[in-house]
């Protein structure tokens, strides 16, 4: 039985490593990849290798399935573009939808859930109104959640389209307002790059910073392997096209108060996926890195989460990251009292 997610990481890093897998281990690898939402990425990564027929069929399905996910994501993006056509200002696609819209390597096979967009904070009321007008509705009409979101979060409460059943998250910045770093969304909007159809994506350095904010803000590292695989794909592609990328990233990360986080993500990505990063970046706390890697790989061959204690440590830490302690107590209490 496979003990943890290492074979998945190995396969992504070095596709040839799968030649050592026995039949039963394939089934385990597939369960782990599905649990980590990396099955589509893995399928693309192993394309062209000589695999057992049943495994090949599963990967073919994953590739087809991603193709539809991609179509739907781009359609949702276009729906938001049409809905916001008369609202002045940029609509910036985020995360998976941005990766596929821009045709980036990080988008190949990537799972995509909701549509995430970034808009200027002072445009929120107009955006909200335009989306409601175009058929989106609040998911939970709960005054506490609503107030909580508006006071402390970096996004509007989630909305869902009443006919297409697809969710949209409208962000005005990339981290909760209660988190310690205060990124500069204004700069992200200013530098956003227009795609052919009138939608925008973030500039490479901002996109990388947002990816890191996403890894670190979900401080319990749920989905961490996938988020760091995104990071690996982004920086590998950006640095190949721009020799100054790392330097520019450093400056921009500084501005967003995310430099430490970006460096740490780079170290983790390097350790997991062999990402080429600047030499002087790879200095850090060895113990912290080892504990984090232990957390990131905590899954067994049935696809189950393992290492409960390590997970718990990271879970508490993640709530700590997002909110100051008193507010955390208040939040958990309110959540607890409600059914």
């Amino acid at each position: 039985m496979i003990k943890d997610a290492t074979p998945l990481i190995d396969a992504l890093r070095d596709p040839q490593s799968v030649s050592a897998l026995g039949d039963g281990q394939w089934s385990e690898l597939i369960s782990i990849a599905r649990a980590e939402s990396l099955i589509g990425s893995l399928a693309h990564r192993l394309r062209g290798l000589d695999l057992p027929d049943r495994v090949q069929a599963i990967f073919d399905d994953a590739i087809d399935s991603h193709e539809l996910v991609r179509t739907q994501a781009l359609w949702e993006a276009d729906c938001s573009r049409r809905a916001l056509f008369y609202v002045e200002g940029k609509t910036v696609l985020m995360k998976g939808t941005a990766y596929v819209a821009a045709g980036l390597a990080a988008g190949v096979g990537r799972s995509i859930g909701d549509l995430d967009i970034l808009v200027a904070k002072d445009k929120l009321p107009l955006v909200e109104e335009a989306l409601l007008d175009a058929g989106w509705e609040w998911v939970k009409p709960d005054p506490y959640d609503d107030q909580y979101y508006r006071e402390h979060m970096h996004e509007l409460p989630p909305m869902i389209h009443r006919e297409r059943d697809q969710m949209i998250d409208v962000h005005h910045t990339i981290l909760p307002l209660t988190a310690k770093p205060m990124p500069d969304p204004q700069k992200m909007l200013e530098d956003a790059v227009e795609l052919a159809d009138g939608l925008f994506i973030m500039a490479p350095v901002d996109m990388t910073c947002h990816c890191v904010a996403h890894v670190m803000a979900d401080g319990d590292f749920a989905g961490g392997l996938r988020n760091l695989w995104d990071f690996h794909g982004l920086v590998t592609e950006f640095s190949a096209h721009n020799v100054q990328f790392w330097q520019q990233l450093e400056q921009r990360a500084q501005r967003h108060q995310l430099l430490q986080h970006v460096r740490w993500a780079a170290v983790l990505s390097h350790q997991l996926y062999g990402t080429a990063i600047p030499e002087q970046w790879s200095v850090g706390s060895k113990i912290r890195d080892r504990l984090t890697l232990h957390r990131l790989t905590a899954r067994d061959g049935y696809g189950r989460e393992t290492r409960k204690l390590t997970r718990l440590i990271f879970y508490i830490r993640s709530h700590w990251l997002r909110m100051p302690p008193m507010m955390l107590a208040k939040h958990l209490w309110t959540k607890f009292r409600r059914p």
Partner: peptide
């Protein structure tokens, strides 16, 4: 009408 752009 099947719309290839949306899958709807």
């Amino acid at each position: 009408i099947f719309d290839r752009r949306s899958g709807i």
